[in-house]
Design a protein around this nucleic acid. Structure first.
Lengths: 165, 165
DNA sequence: TCATTTTACTTGCGTCCGCAACTATTACAC
DNA sequence: GTGTAATAGTTGCGGACGCAAGTAAAATGA
């Protein structure tokens, strides 16, 4: 959930200036909206956003399989959280558990044929939602600049200059 | 939770082009990171991100009070969710419940003196975290362009042109 | 080699929150 | 005015997930 983070206080002390505040609030709002849109789009398919993440990651991995710990890391999920999420997906037949041959501590999550078909059925809707809620509202230049800015934030560096269209 | 939304599939079908995919993934990643940073920053103060949102909203409202339904709407929270979250804040003395005089269906959430002091104690750390995790990595021009792009996404329109520094 | 530490996963428990159902109050319709 | 609908809030229930503890297996080190 993306909760609010308004910075106003009763004594009208603002700790961010207008540009900063406006951008920060917009960031929080947009995220909340996008997340809600994606969740809403996936719900009729009987999947959560988290479920989709598992299927997508597995489908993009060699052999359509991944160690639990690696999967948990990329999904920013705790070990127990992933165990439970996988329980659900296994129950529905989208994913199978398979013990690793090399390391007997490890369980591999494997995308099943059923899971792959599910993903193929859902992906078009999902992509359409991403476009409708996000990408379609940006020009190509803005898209690139936004990407550059976000990657700078991501890597903890200061970013380069924006390019006008 | 910000789950992954990688679009790759086993047959290497990509539904977003490289720019789109890169920006979308960066958006998801940055959001996850920011949310984790804020949560982590608030935890030692004994507050969740959601709790902070309630206190901040109330402090910025006339009379430091808000109807439950209005508060729920701005926080994108279900009625029951807000009831429970308020339960916790009331138990700690940060917020009080007060029946409305005009409409006897309505309960007002009121920021207490204790709650206000709590907020004042926490806000500097919170703002520092927002800067460290987000704002400091953007130039002033990027900040403005980013804000404009996000507001365009927010309002569902197509945005204008970016401005180079 | 064998004790210690680290890593991988699962289970018990508590918290947060959404949905559906319920009560109370107000607004609307005829 | 009275019956119907809409609105505000709370409660029961269940799902999702994090933390701490537990088990099993591998890595380290003396």
């Amino acid at each position: 959930m993306a909760s609010e983070t308004s910075m106003g206080s009763a004594s009208d002390v603002h700790w961010l200036d207008d540009d900063e505040m406006a951008t920060w609030l917009a960031m929080v709002e947009v995220n909340t909206a996008i997340q809600a849109a994606v969740e809403e789009d996936l719900a009729p398919h009987g999947l959560t956003n988290g479920d989709y993440g598992v299927l997508a990651r597995l489908s993009a991995s060699p052999g359509q399989r991944l160690r639990m710990c690696d999967l948990a890391a990329t999904l920013h999920l705790s070990p127990s959280g992933l165990t439970r999420r996988l329980d659900g997906l296994v129950r529905e037949g989208f994913v199978a558990r398979e013990p690793s041959a090399e390391d007997r501590r490890v369980m591999l999550a494997v995308l099943t044929e059923v899971g792959y078909e599910k993903l193929r059925g859902v992906a078009p809707d999902h992509v359409a939602t991403v476009r409708r809620a996000f990408i379609d509202h940006l020009s190509r230049t803005q898209l690139r600049n936004l990407g550059a800015a976000l990657r700078a934030v991501q890597s903890g560096t200061v970013s380069g200059r924006d390019v006008a269209p």
